[in-house]
Amino acid sequence: MKENWKKLFKTPNFVVGFVMVFIIVFLMMVGFFYLPYDVNAMDVVNKLAKPDNVHLLGTDHLGRDILSRIMQGARISILIGILVVIFGLITGTLVGSVAGYFGGKADEIISKLIDTQMAFPGVLLALMMIAVFGNNLGNIILALGIMSIPRFARITRSGFMKYRDAEFVRASRVRGAGDFYIMFFHILPNIVPDLIVTCSLGFASAVMSEAGLSYLGLGIQPPTPSFGKMLSEAQNYILQAPWYVMIPAIAITFLVMGFNMMGDGISKVMQH
């Protein structure tokens, strides 16, 4: 295990990704204790101010401090990322393990359902749920969570199919172990590395989807900052105040690309 960590930190992809994510997470953590300005304090006279020593990253179109909003906006993005991954991980693993372990009819039904869902555009599903159940954080997480089930379910299913007739499983079965015990104490640990990679990719895609939904004006309600919301508000000022657009764009890039690269790094290390 320790060796793996060492290897990880020698993988360039992982290190770069880690640094990117670390910057955003660090900003967020600092934000819990200290924010330079109130995120909603407006100062319309100093709107669209360039980055300087008063406002390190400048101010937005209503004169709010961009740095403070990035620090707080990171919370929403990361919270959504984490909750979506947890939801997808638990549901997807359960569903996938049943399909992969038992096979037969159960597998067929579950696989078909997952295929159906994969064929359905995720953003469309999220838009539909928001339209039907209302626009709040819980629904967004649920919608994005449902979207992320297939990726976890497929990985788990293929892992379980690979191991369900393995020697150590048969040995355990002969000793009288129950299906539940075999599934979650023998097989599952073997596919944990795959799931970790999937988590990091799932996290990145959840952050991206949230940004997209907020950008469309559907996710987070103003004036609460989130990366996507900030980007969407900034787009009208792209010519007048390019830095205003760049900052949330860079933050999203760091978070999404960072997690993708970390996932890449992990999967490389595990293949060796």
């Binding site: 555009p121 995720g122 953003v123 990726r151 497929r154 990985i155 990679v197 999937t198 990719l201 990145a204 895609s205 991206m208 989807s209 940004a211 997209g212 950008y215 469309l216 993708n260």
Partner: peptide, 17 residues
């Protein structure tokens, strides 16, 4: 497949944007 997924999602988001 995973990567393809990510790429697709990204592409979708971009069209959305």
């Amino acid at each position: 497949m995973k990567k393809l997924c990510v790429i697709l999602t990204m592409a979708m988001m971009l069209t959305g944007l």
